[in-house]
């Protein structure tokens, strides 16, 4: 059986909120290492990969591999009933029909309990190859969100060019063009404001802004976002969570003109 207790419901609320517009039905794969999720969007352009390590829960117990097929719209409805600060416990039997969610208020004696019916989801897992990326950029997640939103006002797509000069986000649209360039930057007082660019060779790729703006819904999960790029491979957008847990998005590039 599965029993996983999260100190704050907020974490799951934010994760589900960040992915629910991208994927609708998905398996939460539970085993003794934690709870994982991998799903593609309907157009097969983007892939979300979530890992909530067992260390992110206290306690965490999962004796066997259990796949919880959950509709994220249903999960969102139930998670809305949880306060951000509530303690959240997920429970399921070994061959479950439902997943049980318990929300406990730390301040009051209120305990709420919900069951969500599970779905049988036949989901194919994709093998994600280990990649030595040509460029890795760590930057404030709010900055990345702002750049994507600003450029989306002009164009459907953005080119991300990484060179010794820095990283340049550029777009061209009907009304004109725009770009934002960031250079490496260290803020001793506020490390979450750092921009770090690790480059082994120059990269230039084009991506759909609609997807990137969608990924940025995860911004509240982490002060920093990591972008990993290599020519001709999907972009990796990673939001690191505590205890080596993570929320990753992969986005296939667009073909250049």
């Amino acid at each position: 059986m599965l029993e996983a207790r999260l100190e704050q419901a907020n974490l799951l609320k934010k994760v589900v909120d960040a992915i629910k517009d991208l994927v609708q039905d998905c398996n939460f794969d539970c085993n003794d290492s934690g709870i994982a999720l991998q799903a593609m969007d309907n157009s097969h352009v983007a892939l979300v990969s979530m890992m909530l390590k067992s260390e992110s829960f206290s306690p965490f117990r999962c004796d066997r591999n259990i796949a919880l097929g959950i509709n994220l719209t249903s999960l969102t409805k139930v998670l809305r009933a949880a306060q951000n600060e509530d303690i959240l416990t997920l429970k399921a039997e070994d061959a479950p029909d439902v997943v049980n969610l318990v929300f406990e208020s730390a301040e009051s004696d209120r305990i709420s309990e919900y069951d969500i019916k599970l779905m049988d989801i036949d989901q194919e897992h994709l093998g994600i190859p280990e990649t030595e990326y040509a460029a890795t950029i760590s930057m404030p997640s709010a900055e990345f969100q702002r750049i994507c939103r600003d450029l989306m006002a002009l164009s459907e797509s953005v080119s991300i060019e990484c060179s010794k000069e820095g990283v340049k986000f550029a777009c061209q649209g009907d009304i004109g063009s725009g770009s934002v360039t960031l250079r490496s930057h260290t803020n001793v007082d506020k490390p979450e404001m750092n921009v770090e660019i690790d480059l082994t060779e120059p990269v230039s790729l084009t991506f759909s802004l609609k997807y990137l703006v969608g990924f940025c819904k995860a911004s509240s999960l982490s002060g920093q976002v990591k972008l990993c790029l290599s020519n001709e491979v999907p972009l990796l957008v990673e939001y690191a969570l505590a205890n080596n847990s993570y929320l990753r998005f992969y986005l296939a590039p667009k073909i250049g003109d």
Partner: peptide, 14 residues
């Protein structure tokens, strides 16, 4: 999406 590659072109089904 026009000119958009698929993620399946990069990651293989297990």
């Amino acid at each position: 999406v026009k000119n958009q590659k698929s993620i399946l072109g990069f990651f293989q089904k297990k």
